[in-house]
Design a protein around this nucleic acid. Structure first.
Lengths: 195, 195, 195, 195
DNA sequence: AATGAATGAGGTTTCATTCAT
DNA sequence: GATGAATGAAACCTCATTCAT
């Protein structure tokens, strides 16, 4: 699926809105088509089936996500700073598109196991980013040398994810990006050297 | 719903098995009834509807979970020790009942948003347990005095949860309880005083 | 599928009527259910899917058909008489249930190839009956000793079938059973003069 | 529909191939267009609708069929010889174009009743040819004077048709034209002994 | 004449829940 | 209390046809 066709993005954007507003189960194809301003059948010119819309949605949005963070990270010197940027951007992106946050944190998780495995493939790029930061942190002495890579990544991703989910479920009553420094400090405390 | 009626537990145990083996979507009421050895209609003498089975399932299993951990924690003197017991018991419990782990970590998450909000209510007791440990840790000087309670809890729960989920998705290839000390050290590093 | 459950036959009879009156493509499951006086879903308690209704329909009706003819044939001494009974009964049965005739001669033939192969299995019993008559006729000297069994059967079945189809397509303007003696004479004697 | 436009025949030939290879139901207009090397929309410049392709297909192919047999028959003196040529040519033609045989004997029969009625109109010319042979046979004393014209035609056509269908369904394992003499003898003489 | 992107109607099947026995 | 046969709503996807270019 090439992504430079206008209707392709039109449908994905419509899907985000419809799923966020109606929930995963009430997001019928016909509703998405209507929101996108196309006929039901048109959906199937751009997507194999309904599941393909969701995978593509995640792919497109997460892809942009990872690229953007990768770009920003390049300029940073330390692993700690890189982690800070990652948290900051993660929170900021989802904060700026609440519908997307609702979809990724709540709605897409009730898709079937198969779909979630596909989504995890997409997530891989993001997890790799975190892994690289951990490795770099250990190499340049910022993080504990005996830090378990997998566990560290699980802590970082689990904490970020849980923080966003809680924010979404609390109906975004507070500023998510403002939490970034504290979350960063917490995570560095876990990974970092006792100094 | 009283829990000392034999068929009640029979149905809940059947639900765990059926959901773990067939997945959330293939866990039809008729299948659960068959596994429990009762008629379809009998389910509705003990549960309001299908959702009620799932909430009750979580309630019963998590209730036992929290009670058990609460009991074990009482005897421990420090917040750090208490956290260690909590992690240890969490990992051990789910490690001993893989079906339950699959259900709570993977299958039940694809329930609808409403159900997950209800499940979160049940989770409250567990989160409270974590909150108490954090407060105690701050009071007796084990943890940083300016630690953000909510964030700390999110880190602890997020990390534990992500660790279990990864273990389940990796088909339980390694020992989950063995990870407890490392996860504990990581989390204490985040919450604890720089010493 | 056992056939002594009342709704089973009720649905099959309804299917014959609905298909005959509306045609194969306009015979929606909902229409058959309504005609049978049951809910749509009830159909699926007795039949695997829509195709299964059609196969079962053919099976039940043709099964009765073959049994009846087999019974009648037993009492006849010669192959010629047996053939006459077969033709007579075939014409009479379909003549007495015009809806069934429409379904078997016109509507069921537009089912997909797969379904028709399944139907051919059912037909096998009928074709075997014809084969036996041919063999018997050759053994007792009624038929030509060098008669090609397969071709003879094809002629007999093809002629009977074409005769019924023409009768159905001509809206049953004439008596089908009355044609039996002539068709019998034709098949026994062909077109040519006895010389 | 004029038939000397190149794309017209191109589309009909494509339809024969696509239907034979994919079956009636999988012979979508788009597939036929692709096989013909034209755009979907182009089909509708030459045919009113999909049904029109199929009727035209039958018309063109059967028309050629009838013409060819008519031509060959002229030179024959007796009805019996004419019938032999008809059978021979029928078998030979379909034998030489297996795709066409599959389409006419199997696939086109699962079209709707309406279409089949239209196809029968086309068939009329062929049936007339048979009728003429029967009449001639009776007039010149070759056939029985009290032969029922309609029944005789039904026997002849039914037998030929059933023979071809069986051959197609048996995946053309044997030579169809080789059967012509036997089928001819059968039709002329029937099953019974010449007495 | 030719294209092909867009349309939108329509039907089979599943499964949670009920209720007469 | 227990049963299980019956219910019926609800949605994804296909594909013949159109029409702006």
């Amino acid at each position: 699926m090439k992504s430079n066709r206008p209707k392709y993005n039109q449908i994905i954007d419509a899907a985000v809105i419809v799923i966020a507003q109606n929930g995963y189960y009430q997001a019928q194809v016909s509703k998405i088509a209507k929101q996108a301003g196309v006929a039901d059948g048109t959906i199937y010119l751009y997507f194999k089936n309904k599941e393909d819309i969701l995978i593509s949605l995640f792919h497109e949005k997460m892809g942009y996500f990872v690229e953007q963070i990768e770009e920003e990270i390049k300029g940073k010197a330390t692993a700690s700073e890189k982690l800070h940027v990652l948290i900051q951007k993660h929170f900021q992106n989802l904060s700026e598109d609440v519908n997307l946050a609702i979809v990724t944190q709540l709605e897409l998780r009730q898709s079937n196991k198969e779909l979630r495995l596909r989504i995890n493939d997409v997530l891989r790029g993001y997890l790799n980013l975190i892994d690289q930061i951990i490795i770099e942190g250990k190499e340049n002495g910022e993080f504990l040398p005996d830090l378990n890579n997998l566990l560290a990544r699980q802590m970082i991703f689990g904490t970020i994810d849980e923080t966003v989910t809680t924010w979404v479920m609390n109906e975004q009553k507070y500023s998510l990006p403002d939490l970034a420094p504290d979350v960063h400090r917490l995570l560095i405390g876990g990974c970092g050297l006792k100094s």
